[in-house]
């Protein structure tokens, strides 16, 4: 298809730990190979042209959520972005905005997600505390299990956070990732928390009532999670609880 093209990468470079360094865009060129992804290209650039280039990959299969970055204006997973998608052969890479920059394309999403989980208590709080693991498990509606998995597919890549203008403007806003996870536990019949408990967490300006429905989350989520429907669902639920 597009074999033998020369690709031009414009990559954001900045090392916040170097006292004299300033943010800049640096241009690199590389020969395209068949089936090349941004993952392959970045590794080739590091090996052959600039060994100091920082970026994060782990599974390189679209599963772990490590490699989200802004590619030509769209935040997405770099490992599964084929370079052949860009007919002009020009690719601009920026780190995800809204996260602590480690260097170049690497941002600290892990720290962010851990803090969010601690703040919103994003874990199952089972209504039956002492479950006997030797006994037959309690049945669960198969439909419910399937629905839970649907909401659990989030990989914490941080795309929804960076794509949300509300979150960028207000640090304390929980963002789509927080609300999706709340929605997941709200749905879970094994969780003891009531609507009131969830209201305390997201029934406010930092939660569903601060969301302006800009839908950057929905439109960029690499896992196509139903943010739009879920946040609306939570908002209705919280509003009903209020009234």
């Amino acid at each position: 298809m597009s074999q033998g093209r020369t690709l031009t990468f414009n990559i954001f470079r900045y090392d916040p730990q170097e006292p004299d360094d300033k943010p800049k865009m640096v241009k690199y060129q590389i020969e395209e190979t068949p089936g090349m992804t941004v993952f392959i290209a970045l590794n080739m650039l590091r090996e052959l042209q600039d060994t100091s280039l920082q970026f994060d990959f782990v599974c390189r299969a679209g599963i772990c959520g490590s490699c989200a970055m802004v590619i030509n204006g769209f935040p997405t997973l770099a490992c599964r972005t084929l370079t052949s998608k860009y007919p002009k052969g020009e690719i601009t890479l920026m780190p995800l905005p809204g996260f602590e920059l480690i260097g170049d394309l690497s941002v600290n999403t892990g720290k962010f997600m851990r803090e969010l989980a601690e703040r919103l208590k994003l874990w199952l709080q089972p209504n039956a505390d002492d479950v006997d693991v030797h006994r037959l498990e309690a049945p669960m509606d198969p439909e419910e299990a399937a629905k839970l998995y649907e909401l659990e597919r989030c990989v914490e890549c941080g795309v929804c956070v960076s794509a949300c203008a509300t979150k960028q403007m207000r640090d304390s806003f929980v963002g789509a990732v927080g609300m999706m996870k709340i929605a997941r536990f709200e749905l879970d019949s094994r969780d003891e928390r009531t609507v009131e408990d969830f209201y305390h967490v997201i029934g406010n300006q930092d939660g569903v009532f601060g969301c302006m429905t800009l839908l950057g989350c929905q439109d960029n989520c690499p896992k196509d999670l139903p943010h739009m429907q879920q946040i609306a669902y939570l908002r209705r639920k919280m509003a009903v609880a209020l009234v």
Binding site: F74, P97, G98, A163, A165, M169, T213, L214, G216, N220
Partner: peptide
């Protein structure tokens, strides 16, 4: 806030945010 918004919108292009 304005700087954060500007920074984000300069790197990420998104229709509904522009509408807003």
């Amino acid at each position: 806030q304005q700087i954060a918004l500007r920074k984000q919108m300069s790197s990420i292009s998104h229709g509904d945010t522009k509408l807003w």
